[in-house]
């Protein structure tokens, strides 16, 4: 029940280097995912242990809402409150919108005077310059976290892969999910199907349960997982992958995470 000092800030949680199950889960929660006419939706953004109950805000740097035409959609009322961040997004066209928070970062780990330290930054070079003299066992790692959710006006339209970091390529459309049905999702790393991606899916409402009730899956050779939705509701999906394809030559590896919110409707 204790928070490590490092995880004490929301930004730190954004960068937590842990396998699929991550504490203080980060999420985006759209007010609406399936709508029948153009409209604004509102999105909550928070880091919490109780899935979809807000706890702490986080910075919205790296937020983009991409419309069906591939252009950025208008965002309004961005704020960072005491317990959550949030914004509104305008869905003005028929088709599907992808709401993404993507901010690649670097983390440095080192020992100084017998204590372990970590630092993070957008630029590997700047981060390396900040490492104090006398630091030992320095390790640099690239961290790419993608936080995502989707909303659709009218009929769903397809998404083009971004081709960078870990992403989910919907085979089953993320706004076409219904209780009892099975969804097929494909995970891509730098645009290519990735096998062995560990995935954990937690149904919303964990505050009212004694356990998280997580479903787990690992992507197959085609990078695919199948998820059968036990019931209607919102689900938090978290996927993790690591490799040695960091962009910076001094980085010893890359930690990739994908966190998505999916709404499953009753039929």
């Amino acid at each position: 029940m204790k928070i490590t000092p490092f995880a004490g800030t929301a930004l730190a949680a954004l960068l937590t280097l842990s396998p699929a199950a991550q504490a203080h889960k980060l999420w985006l929660l759209p007010s609406h995912t399936v709508v029948s006419e153009a409209q604004w939706i509102t999105v909550d953004a928070s880091v919490s242990n109780d899935i979809f109950d807000v706890d702490r805000p986080f910075p919205l740097q790296g937020l983009t809402v991409t419309g069906p035409d591939g252009k950025e959609a208008p965002v309004d009322h961005r704020f960072e409150g005491h317990r959550r961040s949030g914004f509104d997004a305008e869905l003005s066209e028929e088709g599907s919108y992808r709401i993404t928070l993507f901010r690649p970062m670097y983390m440095a780990f080192y020992q100084l005077d017998g204590e372990r330290h970590r630092r993070r930054g957008d630029s590997a070079e700047a981060l390396l310059r900040e490492i104090p003299e006398g630091a030992e066992e320095m390790r640099l790692s690239e961290v790419m976290n993608r936080l995502e959710t989707f909303a659709t006006v009218g009929a769903p339209s397809d998404f083009k892969p971004v081709g960078k970091g870990l992403e989910l390529q919907p085979v089953t459309h993320p706004n076409d999910l219904y209780a009892g049905e099975t969804a097929l999702f494909r995970f891509l790393v730098d645009g290519e199907p990735a096998a062995g991606v560990e995935v954990e899916v937690v149904p919303g409402g964990s505050r009212y349960r004694d356990n998280h009730g997580a479903l787990t899956a690992t992507s197959d050779d085609n990078g695919e997982i199948k998820l059968q939705w036990p019931k209607a509701g919102r689900y938090h999906l978290e996927a993790a992958y690591s490799d040695d394809r960091a962009a910076h030559p001094k980085a010893d590896g890359r930690r990739l995470q994908y966190m998505g919110t999916f709404e499953v409707l009753p039929l």
């Binding site: 029940m1 928070i3 504490a23 242990n49 004694d210 356990n211």
Partner: peptide, 8 residues
């Protein structure tokens, strides 16, 4: 009760 875990 365990943080990020369950309760019993």
């Amino acid at each position: 009760a365990r943080e990020v875990g369950g309760r019993e």
